[in-house]
């Protein structure tokens, strides 16, 4: 599952956006860079969800990439105008980074966490969002961080 698709998902029980957690396996598959496609997707993105997803999936060596994603959603109209006028170069870093995270980054094995505590498994690149497959917060002892010995 790509981060673009993750951005569309909500918890089937609480209808809230899901955090990407416990990432065990990622795949980065190169795809043709199409800035106009990224710009068309921009107005539909939940920027906060995307930034959190990028932070959860970025490799340690990619910390620099994350800096290209500003805290606030970029001004879509300004970027659209720049694209129309052929002045898109100033946004190149941002759009390349968005392309990398939205289109090229595939989450293969991880969990999706609802703010209310439910977790959903992503296995083989396919998230299981059946409400009855939610791993409830009460049943998570097995994945809780080990206690630090004093």
């Amino acid at each position: 599952m790509r981060l673009l698709t993750h951005n569309l998902l909500v918890c089937p029980v609480h209808r809230e956006a899901l955090r990407i957690e416990q990432v065990r396996e990622l795949e980065v598959i190169a795809a043709e860079y199409r800035p106009e496609f990224i710009v068309r997707m921009l107005p539909r993105l939940d920027w906060g969800v995307l930034r959190a997803a990028a932070a959860a999936t970025a490799a340690a060596a990619e910390a620099g990439r994350l800096e290209a994603l500003p805290p606030q959603a970029p001004d879509v109209e300004a970027i659209q105008a720049a694209l129309r006028d052929g002045q898109v170069a100033q946004y190149e870093g941002l759009l390349q980074t968005l392309h990398h995270f939205l289109v090229e980054t595939h989450v293969i094995t991880a969990r999706l966490g609802c703010p209310h505590g439910e977790q959903y498994a992503i296995d083989g690149g396919i998230p299981n969002l059946l409400a009855e497959a939610a791993i409830s917060p009460d049943a998570m002892e097995d994945v809780a961080a080990p206690a630090v010995a004093s």
Binding site: M1, L4, P12, A31, E32, I126, L129
Partner: peptide, 9 residues
């Protein structure tokens, strides 16, 4: 060019 993804739900 295309994005295809799959969701179990």
């Amino acid at each position: 060019h295309s994005v295809m993804d799959w969701i179990q739900a």
